[in-house]
Amino acid sequence: MAFDIELKHLPAVRLAGLPHCGPYPTIGPIFQELAGLIPEPSWVEVEGAAMIGHDNPREVAPEKLRSHACFIVSEGFAMVPPLEEIRYPAGKYAVMTVKGPYAQLPEAYRWLSEEWFPASGERHRDLPAFEAYLNDPSDTKPEDLITEVRLALKG
């Protein structure tokens, strides 16, 4: 299966996140905890949800996978513990759009890392890819979910 990739120049991204350790699909409760830590007036500073997977699930045991549940936030957002600030710089990104259930994301990542990237001629920045969720799974049918996987590139 192939996925659509666009090379884009993206602005810098500031994330407010909470760490998670375990299988990536079990991160849902961490997103709920994250939402509970943000007081209502601050929601105007939240621009969307994202997840960072720090490990390759084909190389690391599921119970040891490290990730962060995050919200993309504006510069005006007040970062308070236990929230962790994570930043991605502006620059060139490979953006893979995945439409449909989150269950297809492992195959999308496999394709990105094993097929597209080696053939692309691009060079990777030393940052893990992150997923930006463009709609809400609580009110969107799985087949209509849209996720962008954003991979930072050099150049």
Rank of each mutant, 00 (worst) to 15 (best):
Y102G: 01
S113G: 12
L65C: 03
R150Y: 12
H68Y: 01
R110V: 06
F71L: 08
E47D: 08
P25A: 03
A49P: 09
Y88H: 07
N135R: 07
L18N: 01
A12I: 08
P82K: 03
L105K: 03
R125M: 13
V149I: 15
K92W: 08
E84Q: 15
E143K: 07
G17T: 03
E40N: 02
Y24K: 04
A94R: 06
V73R: 00
G91W: 07
G76V: 11
S42P: 06
P81G: 03
P137V: 14
V98Y: 09
C70S: 00
E143I: 05
K64Q: 15
P89F: 00
E115W: 10
S138N: 03
D136T: 05
A78W: 05
H54G: 14
H54C: 15
V44M: 13
I52D: 09
Q104V: 02
A103H: 09
L65K: 02
E45F: 09
W111T: 09
E45H: 12
L65Y: 02
H9F: 07
C70N: 00
R66M: 08
G76E: 12
A12M: 04
R66E: 03
R58A: 12
A132R: 10
A12L: 06
I146G: 03
Y93I: 14
A16W: 04
I27P: 11
I38P: 09
P25D: 13
E84G: 13
G17C: 10
A50R: 03
G36A: 01
A90M: 14
I38Q: 04
P11S: 10
G100S: 07
V46T: 01
E122T: 13
A108P: 11
M96C: 03
L145D: 00
E148Y: 08
G76Y: 09
G22R: 05
E33Q: 14
T140A: 06
P137S: 14
R87D: 14
Y88P: 12
S120Q: 14
A132V: 11
E75P: 14
L18C: 00
W43K: 05
S42M: 10
L145T: 01
C70F: 00
E131H: 09
R110D: 04
F130Q: 01
A49G: 13
P142H: 10
Y88W: 07
P128G: 11
V80A: 11
G22P: 06
H68W: 03
D139K: 03
V95I: 01
E63D: 00
W111G: 01
